[in-house]
Design a protein around this nucleic acid. Sequence first.
DNA 1: CATCAGGACACAG
DNA 2: CTGTGTCCTGAT
Length: 289
Amino acid sequence: MSPWKELIQAKNLSLLGLRETLEGGQSFSWNATSAFSWIGSFESKVVELKFSQKIIFWRTSLIHQAEESQVLDYLWLDQSYEDAIDNLPWRSDLVLAQCIKSLPGLTILNQPLEEMLFYFLLSSAKSIPQIKEAGYLVCKNYGVSLGKDLWGFPGWKKLADIEEEELRKLKLGYRAKYVHQVAQELRNDSEFLSRVLNADYENAHSLLTSLPGVGPKIADCTLLFGGKKPQAFPIDTWISKTLDTHYKLSSLNLAQKVLFARAHFGKFCGLAQQFLFSAERLGLIENRE
DNA sequence: CATCAGGACACAG
DNA sequence: CTGTGTCCTGAT
């Protein structure tokens, strides 16, 4: 590994925010190396991050090297993040304001689209550790070694050659069929993912939901965390509960909740979703009845 | 041994 | 559009 270097010193960073960004369910490729550092990979690059004295430090594998600009881009820690936060309606929404305040530096990671589609295909009715385990086994068996106990995503082209039964052995369960079928479709339509990336949010969403095993929730997760679409607002049971409890929306169905979220939180509603999700999950939202 | 998880899908009513 | 059962698997 390269020597530690200072990555960024921003006014609003916190250990909790960084930890939640890396471990809170938007990425499954990071593992803690200490109480305040993590190692992970994206696009076959290996990076270790460390939080100390309000500063994020980074170092990278000498063989599978990342550039500083790539790490910053991945973490979304630049002025556009500050601008997005400022665009959220925290001035009039005290619940959201509290979530933002309690998780300084929580960001939406800018991850590879193909990896996000893969991991979120595995996510249905699985917990974070289970998703990580299944994804890890696929990478270990079919991906490239990136170092000690580190494996890169094999890519869809390679996944297309794997039988469903083989995937079932790697703890994918009924999701094995989805991965197998999606891999076939992507092989037959090699431009599919780049069309998703270049489409606007609505079209990208309907493209993704046309794939087997991809419903509205998984499509939104894929687009938010891997498709640079901050308008995506994935609604899982946590967020649904938050909207019911703190926004009094229990009478709305999922589609209506999405409409509310876009109208209320604005063009960066996906970022608002992440703050609400993490705060709810960590029990940081006070009941102010 | 039964139930449930950070869903999707097929099929009622 | 709402409700229900099914699909794998591991945890409780």
